[in-house]
Structures are given as structure tokens and as C-alpha cells.
Design a protein around this nucleic acid. Sequence first.
DNA 1: GTCCCTTCATGCCGTATCGGCATGACCGGA
DNA 2: TCCGGTCATGCCGATACGGCATGAAGGGAC
Lengths: 336, 336
Amino acid sequence: MSELRRLRYFLAVAEERNFTRAAERLHIAQPALSRQVRELERELGVELLVRTTHKVEPTEAGRMLLERGPALLDAADSLWRGVRAFADGRMGSVSLGYGMSAGYETAPQLLLAMGAEAPGIEVSARVMAFADIVDSVAAGTLDVGLVRSALPEALPDDVELTLLRRERQGVVISSEHPLAANGADSIDPAALDGLKLLLHPRTHNPGHYDEIMEICARAGARPEVLYRGLDFDASYTPVASGAAVTMVGYSGRIGLPSGLLWLPVTPAAFIEVHLVTRRENHSPAVKRLLRVAEETSRQHNWLTGALEESVTGVGNRRALGLDGADIGAIDGAYEV
Amino acid sequence: MSELRRLRYFLAVAEERNFTRAAERLHIAQPALSRQVRELERELGVELLVRTTHKVEPTEAGRMLLERGPALLDAADSLWRGVRAFADGRMGSVSLGYGMSAGYETAPQLLLAMGAEAPGIEVSARVMAFADIVDSVAAGTLDVGLVRSALPEALPDDVELTLLRRERQGVVISSEHPLAANGADSIDPAALDGLKLLLHPRTHNPGHYDEIMEICARAGARPEVLYRGLDFDASYTPVASGAAVTMVGYSGRIGLPSGLLWLPVTPAAFIEVHLVTRRENHSPAVKRLLRVAEETSRQHNWLTGALEESVTGVGNRRALGLDGADIGAIDGAYEV
DNA sequence: GTCCCTTCATGCCGTATCGGCATGACCGGA
DNA sequence: TCCGGTCATGCCGATACGGCATGAAGGGAC
């Protein structure tokens, strides 16, 4: 039942073997200390110190307390420090959900940055479908989502979007395809007219579907849409055979099967990637992740898109922005 | 810096997820609890609970505190319990010193009783010379001593004697010795006149030396004293050869080398065994040992000496009081 | 939408606890 | 014997604590 102040006081006296010096160490007056220690003895019903006018000696019980007491104070201190660490976001846990498309570059970079900036925070990341991400965030079972082409007006009121990346779109196409012939380093979306275009069903992420179609429409192209499942890699089969093409963001260049090329769409077209969070009650760990995400976005020019604007070439690593610093930490194969 | 009451209060609220119920559990009013938890948050600088009018949810820091807090309270409780255990003599340590003579029965029985009655107390026992025992107790480096024939007037003022045992004296003699012939089951000290009697030098324990000599003198005997060292067993050599006899207490019958007999002196003569302690400042563990010693003395009739009075026979286990209960726990060999 | 009930927060007050100051009691050493 | 050092005690003001009355807010029933 007793509190820790009394224990601290006793320990000071027992260590100093002197009330006066202990009182100075504790910055209180000696009589106050004398009474507090006496009070501790009274409430424990135990004699802890044998006092003579010139000597203070701990009893056996006192020596036991002197040995084990500091550990308790340390444990208490450690607990308060731990609480503060959770409170200011140095420690904690965050759940992060994202689609396949973010799994090649955006999410890995964010996780890397979290590992470097906030090693005490455990980020449990999982790949989820667009609708699941939004619903889970709204329901509170997911802290942060990473989505493409989310429209604020199509989302529940209590979720919030934070723009993380504007991503140059490009066409994934077989290197044998006529449009990729002659070392072409970009593709005019007008050229997609009548071609088979591989996309997720519109219901999966209507905003994203509409944006892709808008890019084509702006150029006057009306491709024939083929639907594919969520399994990204397996869906490349029709592309590899040359029967179809697909359109993905700049980060989709990573991990392309051999024989496929990513050629940027020209004039440049961008699709936005957002962080999805609940509007309020962000835990310190979530706030920390949001700060780290903002920093990561800035460092990689994800918002200005300047680096991606300049993407023009095929078969030219530098032109693709695939210098060592950018790609080094990402373990992916690609064809240039 | 913070104290434990606040932690207890917070844990109650966090567990109940409800201030009102937690307040009931803690037997305080809800507003007081509300304020204490708020105060804990203020002094930690951490939000621990998210309150709405109908729900109380811990934050991440709060959950961390909820997980690790109870361990701290348990540690504190365990510490207070431990202190009390030392204070009331359930735990602790005592140093006990005794001479060879007490090492055969008196000390072992006391240690056995301590092991049974106060298993938490560590008794560090060692065989010491009489003078060392008294000096160490007086100096405070030994808690309890066990001595024969101590005279209060010959001791320092600050040590105290407690009578533990009145021990029937007997003669240790070769079974080939004329005095042991014809199945004699006791010896009249008068018969010791002119015999060689093996004793420690008088300086070793003057009181004991004088008492032995007094027993002889009362019977008109004047034995010739041979001095022996403190090594009890080795000193038996002259006794085994029949060249000398010695006189020891009843407990000296245990561990006699083969071919030696212990024959009680008749008429019965007794020598007292005392506990030596400092007069004051007994630790709870010492007090506990003194209580256990008193109880042991009572159980074995060490003070009434009734059992030893009836000792008359040689070669008769029952007559020697060596029934199983008495001897079972003592690992000694003896000749009957 | 309105009312009501539940729940937590706030204001105010009496009491207990705590710490400071002045002083007393005791002991060892010069 | 006196003096210095040490711990204990008495008294007082400040702070902390808990209780009571009451307010504010949100969910549920109708």
C-alpha cells in the first residue's frame, strides 16, 4: 500500500547512514525526512533502522529493503519512461495496408524509412484490396492505408486522405510489340486506340479505372478493356504474349518479367497515391508514420514528380531514374 | 517521480473501462478518481485514456501501462511482504558458534529444529573455541554462541546467558579398562582418584575445568590431569589405549570410536550448556532462533534432565535413551 | 426529434499529509 | 564539563486528497 516516496527517502538514509546528509541529498529538511522514514516503519510495522544519536544502522529488514528497493524504483522509472516513449511515438505499433501496386516501391520505401527513423515502432504491413483498405481504416481495424486514385467524395466522412505521391503513368508492353519497336522510349496514349488494355474490374477501384480511361480518352483512344484479377504478376501473361498491354505507375517498372518494357505515357499523365487514415484519434505511432511518410515523399520528390517528368528513355538506366541510390534497396528485376 | 496510488487508480479504470465502476472497486468517489487519473496524465505528460461520455478507451501508451503496470504493483507488494518476513523472523540469517562438545548433539538438534520451524532463516554455524565465541558475541560478529559452564560474572556486561541444557556427565573409558569390567554401567567419581584424566587446558574454559575438577573433588578424588588439544577425536588415543580416561557430557556418547564406552558418573553430576547472546538488539531471526532453541530444549527434556538421570546401563540402548526418535536424525556411530 | 439516463468533468470545501522552522534530547570527543 | 553533531518533537502553513453537489455530453427509447 505504501508509496514510493517513502521508499526513496528510506534508501537515501540507509545509503548515507545519516539523516542530515540524506536530507540534503533529497533537498528536504532533516526533520521532515526523519518523520517520513518513521512513518514508513509505522505503516510497514517494521523497524528498519537502529538510530543512536551518532549512528544510523539498518536492521536486517532494512538491509533487505536497501538491497531490493532500488530495483523497484528502477522498475518504476523504466515504466514511466516506457509510457512516455509510447506517448511520443518512439515506440508503438501501426498497421499499414496497401495494394499490389504500392508493393513494388512506395510501401517498401516507407517501411525502410520507418525502420531507420522510428525503429521502436512495429509496422505490421499487409497487401489488401482497395475497398478493404478503406473499410478497415473507417472501421478502425487498420491504422493507415496506401491507395491510388482515391476520391474524397467517395469515402466515408471519418477518413482522411493525405497526398503522398504523384506517379507518372506508363504502358507495360512486350518488347516485341510494334509500339515498342525501333527503340521507342515513350508511348502516346492515342496509340492505344483499339488495343486490348488489361485493367482491374472497375468495381475494384472505380476512381482509378476512370482515371486510366480518362488518360486514353483525352488522347482520343478507346482501348478494349480486358479484366484481370488481383494477382499482378500472373496477369502479365497476355501482355508478355503481345496480345495486350496494361498501364501502371512509374514504380510498376520494378519487378517486370523479362521481355516486358515500361514505357512512359507522353504527354505525361499522373495518378495520385494517398495515405488513408481516420480523421482523428491518431495514435502517436501513427502520427510518427505520417511524419516519416511526408519526409520520405519529399526526399524522393514523390509530389513534385520532377524526376519522373524527365523519364523519356528505354534502355537507359539514368533516364529511367534507376540510379543506385534510388533502386539499391529494392530487390527487383527489370528489363530496360 | 510519480507514486503508486495513481497507477493503481489508472489500472482500475483501464481494466473496468469505466470510471464509475472503478471508483466503486477502489472505494472512492468517481470525481476523485477522475481527477487522480487526469493528474497522472498531467504529470506524465501523456494521454492515457480517450474518454467519451459513454466509453473509456486506453491509448497506446495506456495499453502499455495497463500491460506492464500490474507487474510493478506486484513487485512493490512482494517487496513489502519480504520486508515483513525479515522483520518478523520468517526470513533472515543468524550466525551460530559452538564448541566441539556441542557439535555431537546439541547444535545438530538445534539446526534441525531451525530447518523445520524457520526454513527461511539461514543459520551459518561454525565450531569455535570458547573464548572466541564469547568475544565474537560481545563484538557483534557472532549472533549466538553455545557454551558449557559459562559463568555470568566472568562474561562482558553486554552478553547474556540463556540456560539451554543440563547435561549428565560421564566418563569415557576403554572397554578393556578395569573400571569398565564386569559390565559396570556407571562410575563413581571417587574411582578416578589417581587416574590420568584428559582435559582441555584450564585457560580454554576455566569454568568448565573447575566444574569437572569439583565433581571429582566432591567424591574425594584427585585425578592426574593430562591436557589435550581441541581436536576431540584425535585426543581419544590415550583413552583408547587405556592409559587415561576423560569426562564428557551425555551427548559425548555419540561418535565414540570403537572400543570406548561412555559410563555415567554416579551419583549424577550435571554441567550446564548456555546460549550466549548480546543483551539487546536481537534481530528477529535471532529471536526466532532463541524461541526455537527453547522449544527444542523443552521437547528433549534438556533442562529437567529427567531422561539423563535414568541413564544407568551400558550396552542397553533404551537405558541410554538412544531410541530411534532421539537418535534417528543424528548420523553418529557409538559403542554400547 | 425529444426526453431521459448514464457517464465523466468541474467547483467547492473539509481533512490529512507533507515539508519547513525552531527547538529539544542525547551522545561522543576535546 | 562544554561543545559540536545528530536525530526527534512541536507547531504551522501549503499542498494534496477525497467527498458532495452539480454540470455537460452523448447514446438509446419512443
